[in-house]
Design a protein around this nucleic acid. Structure first.
Lengths: 212, 212
DNA sequence: CGGTTATGTGGGACTGAGTGTCAGATTGGA
DNA sequence: TCCAATCTGACACTCAGTCCCACATAACCG
């Protein structure tokens, strides 16, 4: 489950190079965007600093925004991966929770810092926020199709949509909280917060307004 | 609740003109995008056909995508409007449902056709889909802040996030279904489908996988 | 090992969205 | 009727993203 690193000798040379440039780009991007701002940093600045061509950039990332949210992508990729592999049994919401929590736990040690940087960046750049919103929708769709297959249910079944969105909602709220505390408590605190979020889901439907 | 039309004599002339150009732009846009495709239609094509300048376009819409999803905006604007005005009492999810259903019902008669055209367009243009995803997130955030104020609850309370997202989820599924049937059954069918969606929300949490 | 093929890279030209500015027109008010 | 506020059109500019082609380098095979 560990992501292949650029110096993994088992990979063909070409693949290793690709990973190296990818990593160079994400690192440089996070640094430049943080220092100068997302909008103020042009793609030319970035590829210049990372010493690759614009062509190469677009062969690795579909858009300027994409290189800034690698940490987000790593998380959801791991989540979907687990969801696909897992034999589901029992309440589905709990299964989704488990997949997400496991995914978070297994991410490489440097992820925390990268994710914090990414989230902070997003707070300053509307374009990034829009990009993440749409990206997560894609993740939800993937999750729905996984579930539909695994449970042998119509992909249009509302229940799947609700469950898939609940997962991103729980993440969104607990993740934001974690970032607000600057990641204090580390991975453990994040997982704990996530669990609390999932626990309070059932209360949501019961929420009632008392007219004053 | 009826949107002001371009020939409402009670409005100052300036405002009437503004509405007229807005309407010209949305109508032309929907037509051109449908005929030639969203990507294949340039902004110059559009403003040329609508007989306004590019400057005027960007004074009315923040992006090319925005002019294509006016029907979507009308819906959610009406929803949020009702949500703000309404005195909430009882189960909040039911209240949200009521706001949305009322909003749909009250929209002007031409809305059906415009919305169908918009949704079909979105199926063909990824950029539009991304734009709508992000737009709806904004609506959810607005709804959350409304609810937080009305219920005197922390805006970070997960329950509000869940409720706000459930609303867009229910809409998304029932709306897609309605569009797939080419809007057959009209507004009434849409509202009925929406009600069914809301009804099946509680079952979602209970959904359980039976290992085979 | 040497030669061939496939794949990746850099460079440059091009399109089109979105922004800023400014002079001129149009509206609202006195 | 005249003035001030506001809106419009036109133009120049930046930058993201696409396309294409010559060249290099890795992978494969005899």
């Amino acid at each position: 489950m560990t992501a292949p690193t650029a110096d993994d000798r088992s990979l063909p040379l070409r693949e290793r190079k690709r990973l190296r440039t990818r990593r160079a780009l994400t690192e440089t991007a996070l640094r430049l965007f943080t220092e100068r701002g997302f909008d103020a940093t042009t793609l030319d600045d970035l590829v210049d600093e990372a010493e690759v061509s614009r062509s190469t950039f677009f062969r690795n990332f579909p858009a300027k925004e994409a290189v800034a949210i690698e940490a987000e992508v790593e998380l959801w990729t791991a989540y979907l991966h687990r969801l696909r592999d897992r034999k589901l049994s029992g309440p589905v919401l709990a299964e989704l929770h488990r997949c997400l929590a496991d995914a978070v736990t297994a991410l490489d040690p440097g992820w925390d810092g990268r994710y914090l940087a990414t989230r902070r960046l997003i707070l300053t750049a509307p374009a990034l926020l829009a990009y993440v919103d749409h990206y997560r929708t894609g993740v939800e769709d993937e999750a729905i199709s996984c579930l539909a297959t695994a449970l042998r249910v119509d992909p249009d079944d509302l229940r799947l949509h609700v469950l898939a969105r609940l997962t991103t909602t729980c993440w969104s709220v607990s993740g934001r909280d974690w970032v607000r505390r600057d990641g204090r408590g580390g991975r453990q605190a994040l997982v704990t917060g996530l669990a609390r979020a999932y626990r309070s889901v059932p209360e949501s439907l019961a929420l009632s307004a008392t007219p004053r």
